Amino acid sequence: MHQHLHRGAASTQHKKAEDTFNASWEDLRAFLLCTRHQSFRNAAEVLGLTGTTLMRKIDRLEEELGFKLFLRDQSGLSLSDEGRALLFDVEQMERLSFNIFRRASMSTDTNGTVRVAVTEGPGNFWVLPRLIDFQKTYRKIVVDLRCAMEQADVSRLEADISIQFERPTNPDLIVTKLGRLHIYTFASEAYRDAYGLPKSIADLRNHRIVKQHGMQLDENGYARILGLESLEGIVGISTNSSVAVLYAIERGAGVGFLPTSAIALGA
């Protein structure tokens, strides 16, 4: 066993850049699984190979690349510096291969209606610009975009896809984190010319604020950020609509908070 752990001494001399690289994706995938399982035996079981066959694949890949991928000892496998650098590229290849298979499985002849529920701000500022490109490819799919502050219940068939701020607790749902919502302050040029811009969060107290309220929003968030007990005398307009907030800001009504994706609509 000890002899097997130390076998496969690959040449440490790097191949010339003009040499042809003959390794297959199967060899690279074998390398990927070995890094994840940190064991030839466990990775071989996943691949349906014997441990000896898998080790030969890795030996062949190391010889083809011209450097060692793993440091092998009694405790298992650990990546060499070169192996760690290669891992990033192979993981990228894996992600791209998944995209290829997904595209191959989706026919542009697919038709029907997909109901997408999302809050108004992300719906208008982030989802809608992407739907424009989507519908150019999938001409027969109708996307019913439902923008509302109330959450839609997918399990009750209120929507096919729901994009929301809180992670759902229903274990029967397929849940994916899309990203983070970045909120910044916005003001129009007309407001800036007339009143200047706040130089700090504390300075916002001296300006007029356009405030959004509604479900899924922290009603006390504005006051807490400004360190105030009340927003009396500061808020000029309060609305439950993100589009109304954008319009009021553009018209110089005050300083407002919007997601950075609002820039896609010309904010």
Rank of each mutant, 00 (worst) to 15 (best):
H2P: 08
R7A: 07
R7Y: 02
A9F: 11
S11K: 12
Q13M: 09
A17V: 15
A17D: 13
E18N: 15
D19G: 06
L28V: 10
R29A: 15
R29K: 15
A30P: 01
L33K: 06
T35H: 10
T35V: 14
T35W: 08
T35G: 08
H37P: 03
H37S: 09
H37Q: 12
Q38N: 13
S39H: 02
S39A: 03
F40A: 00
F40W: 00
F40Y: 10
E45W: 07
V46L: 08
L47N: 01
T52H: 09
T52V: 15
T52C: 06
E62D: 02
E63M: 07
L65E: 00
G66I: 06
K68M: 13
F70V: 00
S75K: 11
G76L: 01
L77A: 07
L77D: 04
L77Q: 05
L77F: 06
S78N: 05
D81P: 09
D81M: 09
G83R: 01
G83K: 01
L86I: 09
F88Y: 13
D89N: 07
M93A: 13
S97Y: 07
I100N: 07
R103A: 15
A104E: 12
T108I: 12
T108W: 07
T110G: 09
R115A: 11
A117S: 15
G121R: 13
L128T: 14
L131H: 01
L131S: 02
L131V: 04
Y138K: 05
Y138Q: 03
I141T: 06
V143A: 01
V143S: 01
D144F: 00
R146K: 11
D153E: 11
V154H: 04
S155V: 09
S155H: 05
R156M: 11
E158R: 02
I161F: 06
I161N: 01
S162G: 13
I163G: 02
I163N: 03
P168W: 05
N170K: 04
P171Y: 05
V175Q: 02
G179W: 02
L181R: 10
Y184C: 14
A187Y: 11
S188R: 01
S188C: 01
E189G: 08
A194P: 06
G196K: 05
L197N: 08
D203F: 00
L204K: 04
R205L: 08
V210L: 08
V210E: 03
G214Y: 04
M215K: 14
D218P: 04
E219D: 10
R224N: 13
I225T: 13
L226M: 14
E229Y: 08
E229V: 11
L231M: 15
G233S: 02
I234T: 02
S238H: 02
S238I: 00
S238R: 04
S241W: 06
S242T: 04
A244L: 13
Y247W: 09
A248F: 04
I249F: 03
E250A: 13
F257T: 12
P259R: 06
T260V: 15
T260H: 10
S261M: 09
S261T: 15
A262L: 04
L265E: 11
